[in-house]
């Protein structure tokens, strides 16, 4: 059995018009046995950046702390918040440090980056477990339901979705995907990041 499927779980991020959304399921499993249904896999990094991680739960927890430490160090040294682009490369190089004994997680990064004019531009990125970055224009997926999310997102997503429509699109994509995945589900959490605020909603889902 693959380590990547040991605990189960799925994460997804999508681009909208002047906003991004990132979501995960809430299941923590021990192979087929569900042991917790409140295991969030998406964490705030700054006010405008969220990081989702799917894969081995112990590595999710470890890396969450690693990134908190490294982002804090960056903030102190630079005396400013990290931008999504820089954070994506921080994630990438942190993972590549362990190239031959990797952390078993696939990260998903979603944020708004500040342009020179002071406006915000949506930014998402994904990576594999050794940090090969994927800068997608539409959506990125990771986890045990990734194939399903690719299929549903490819059918539901469209460009320039407003925050509420983006919320609906990412929620429907995640929910319908995890309902067909034995290793994901049992509730979900969605964060929609706009320049003004971050809207976080917990979704009820099938519990079977």
């Amino acid at each position: 059995m693959s380590i990547m499927e040991y605990n189960g779980g799925s994460v997804i991020a999508m681009v909208g018009k002047n906003c991004v959304a990132v979501a995960s399921d809430l299941r923590l499993g021990n192979q087929a046995l569900t042991v917790a249904t409140n295991f969030e896999k998406v964490f705030p990094i700054t006010d405008r950046i969220y990081l989702g991680m799917s894969g081995l739960a112990t590595d999710v927890t470890t890396l969450r702390e690693t990134f908190r430490y490294r982002v804090n160090m960056y903030t102190i040294k630079e005396e400013r918040d990290i931008e999504p682009e820089a954070f994506a490369h921080l994630v990438s190089s942190t993972l590549y440090e362990r190239r031959f004994g990797p952390f078993f997680i696939e990260p998903v990064i979603a944020g708004l980056s500040k342009t020179s004019s002071g406006a915000f531009r949506p930014y998402i990125a994904g990576a594999d477990l050794i940090g090969c970055l994927n800068f997608a224009k539409d959506f990125v997926v990771a986890g045990t339901a990734s194939e399903k999310m690719f299929g549903v997102a490819e059918g539901l997503w469209e460009p320039d979705l407003e925050p509420e429509d983006l919320f609906e699109t990412i929620s429907q994509t995640l929910l319908n995907s995890v309902d067909r995945d034995a290793y994901s589900g049992w509730g979900a959490i969605v964060h929609v990041i706009t320049p003004e605020q971050v809207i976080t909603r917990t979704l009820k889902a099938r519990m079977d």
């Binding site: 194939e147 399903k148 299929g151 549903v152 490819e154 429907q172 319908n176 309902d179 067909r180």
Partner: peptide
């Protein structure tokens, strides 16, 4: 696996 969950939804 790509199509079936889309059909569930639609």
């Amino acid at each position: 696996s790509l199509v079936q969950p889309f059909l569930d939804n639609q």
